[in-house]
């Protein structure tokens, strides 16, 4: 049994620790919401869908994951081009949190892209490169020896391969988010998303922009770009209220991309909902007109190229 003195002291210690963690938690959240940087905020568009965001609610922003990005490129009829992937020889260059996070996203998109085109050895190589980035970020157990072995044993079963990729990405993003490293998780997503844009814009090359499904996919990313900016803005502050330098720098880097996407015109009609009682898959019917001039598309290609070159350095 504790003596009266010991238990009283222990209770006081726990009380102090509890109150301190609670107060720190509350103040950091408040600081996160109150402080605004007018310059950065100015280029976050006022899309209708974001009009009534209630700050009191829990807000999630979801970007296309590396796997979805690769799937969108493939379903647009694109071909595989190994030369477009970030070389795995670069992996040892990445030592900072920023470069490790960006390239975890980039290598995971490359891995997804290679896997969807049944590039078996490349898939293993890129899984190892992604693992190197995860280890560098101290993400424990996201990709372990067993994961690599499971991948090697199922290389001819695309469904299992996709499940492994999805699982490893879930492991790393949940680890980061649950260890209060949401800003790193956001940078990983941006890296993966830019890699998808890079691969797609390179694959279009000088092809005609009209009736080109891959071009449409690229231009549609204007919708995701709004989400990128809001997600980064949400993670712009450190716990102590100071700016997160990696996030702020990334937002500044994305300004040119914002200008490039400004030239994309998107017009949508209202959505009509058509339930399918047999297949139980609802169809959302609407028409969207999306356009860009050839010159503006060239600028978009060049902006993405510049960003990606910086990310893999």
């Amino acid at each position: 049994m504790f003596s009266k003195n010991v238990s009283t002291k222990l209770a006081k210690i726990f009380l102090v620790i509890f109150l301190a963690t609670t107060v720190i938690g509350c103040t950091s959240n408040r600081a996160k919401k109150d402080t605004k940087n007018v310059e950065l905020e100015d280029f976050i568009s006022d899309d209708d869908i974001f009009d009534d965001i209630d700050k009191a609610k829990k807000i999630f922003y979801s970007l296309p994951s590396p796997l979805e990005t690769a799937m969108l490129i493939k379903s647009a009829g694109a071909d595989y081009d190994h030369e477009l992937l970030n070389s795995i020889d670069n992996s040892s260059k990445y030592t900072t949190n920023r470069s490790l996070a960006l390239n975890l996203g980039i290598y995971t998109t490359d891995l997804s892209f290679a896997s969807l085109f049944d590039q078996t050895q490349t898939s293993i190589n890129y899984m190892n490169a992604a693992r190197e980035m995860a280890v560098g970020l101290d993400i424990t157990d996201a990709i372990d020896d067993q994961t690599i072995k499971k991948l090697e044993n199922n290389l001819n079963n695309r469904d299992v391969v996709m499940d492994i990729i999805s699982e490893t990405f879930l492991n790393s993003s949940s680890y980061l988010k649950e260890n209060d490293r949401q800003s790193v998780a956001a940078i990983v997503l941006v890296g993966g998303w830019i890699e998808g844009l890079y691969i797609a814009t390179k694959l279009v090359g000088n092809a005609s922009l009209t009736n080109n499904k891959l071009v449409d996919r690229i231009l549609e990313q204007k919708l995701s770009f709004n989400i990128v900016l809001r997600m980064l803005e949400d993670n712009r502050k450190n716990e102590d209220g100071s700016d997160n330098v990696d996030i702020v720098n990334l937002m500044m880097q994305l300004k040119d991309l914002n200008t490039a996407f400004d030239n994309v015109k998107v017009e949508s009609t209202q959505i009509e909902v058509e339930p399918d009682t047999i297949r139980k898959v609802t169809a959302l019917k609407s028409q969207t007109k999306i356009s860009i001039t050839p010159q503006a598309f060239k600028e978009l290609q060049s902006t993405v190229d510049k960003l990606r070159t910086d990310f893999i350095q």
Binding site: I49, F50, D54, K57, K58, I59, F60, S62, R217, S224
Partner: peptide, 13 residues
């Protein structure tokens, strides 16, 4: 409590 999530969904998927 309430929560909101924003995401772009793509045609044909």
């Amino acid at each position: 409590e309430e929560a909101e999530l924003y995401k772009t969904f793509f045609s044909g998927q």
